[in-house]
Design a protein around this nucleic acid. Sequence first.
DNA 1: ACATTGACCTGGGAGC
DNA 2: TGCTCCCAGGTCAATG
Length: 273
Amino acid sequence: MPELPEIETICRGIASSLKNQKVTEVIINQPKLRWPVPKIIQAKLKNAKILNISRRSKYIILSTDKGSLIIHLGMSGQLLVLPKVHPSIKHEHVIINLECGKALSFVDPRRFGCILWTEDDVSKHKLLKTLGPEPLAKEFTGEYIIAKARTKKVAIKQFLMDSHIVCGIGNIYANEAMFLAKIHPKTPVNLINLSKAKILVKKIQQVLTRAIKHGGTTLRDYRNSEGKKGNFKEKLKIYGRKNEPCIICQSTIQHIRQNQRSTYYCPKCQTPS
DNA sequence: ACATTGACCTGGGAGC
DNA sequence: TGCTCCCAGGTCAATG
């Protein structure tokens, strides 16, 4: 569910509550997430001090003096900062109680998310070490896209959503960026030229930055760490607008499926190469 | 090396 | 009201 802007919003939201806090207890109600929640975190995190909260791709990294938690929210996960004593929530799988009387609560109806533990350098973790660059980093350039795309024929949309090429871009923002860059989502990546690739990078960065500014996109489930919705949905120009007129040319917005994911595009503005 | 499909889950909405 | 079917913001593992 959440993409990079939503994860970034959550990280910023929980950071001030968690930083320098001591963990008093970890409660695991449901260890069966995408991968089992390691039971050892109950012992390891007891009395651990939370040092830092950061993000890599869509992973939230909670670093402590004993090791790091690697958290992914999958499609439906939420991380909430709540009072330690709070009304029970459906699908509240893991709760991390803090010395200050608050708790970090992991809620995830679909259980596609995960909570993992490492005492090693986080960037060496199996799931993180193969990730591509951050889309907002300066090494993500038009030249980088061309270099990665040269030997591939996949559709540009799938390419953008491959976290080993560039991480953090999910279905919504891939759709939005291609509309802004006027690229047809089915265009084989090896046909994208350098000037188009440069425009695409610029538009990806623009849409992600704007979404972060507006607290992310809530289609249905997404909530920030305070349980509030993001405001970027109303700013979406193409995603979810099947059969509506294109805001540029008034053509009817098309909806297709690519790899079991919804794609929206304007047949006139986004010309096939 | 690259491309495609299945798998993991629950819940909401549409249609009958 | 209740059933079935389809859809959903992710991404790894297995298969071709």
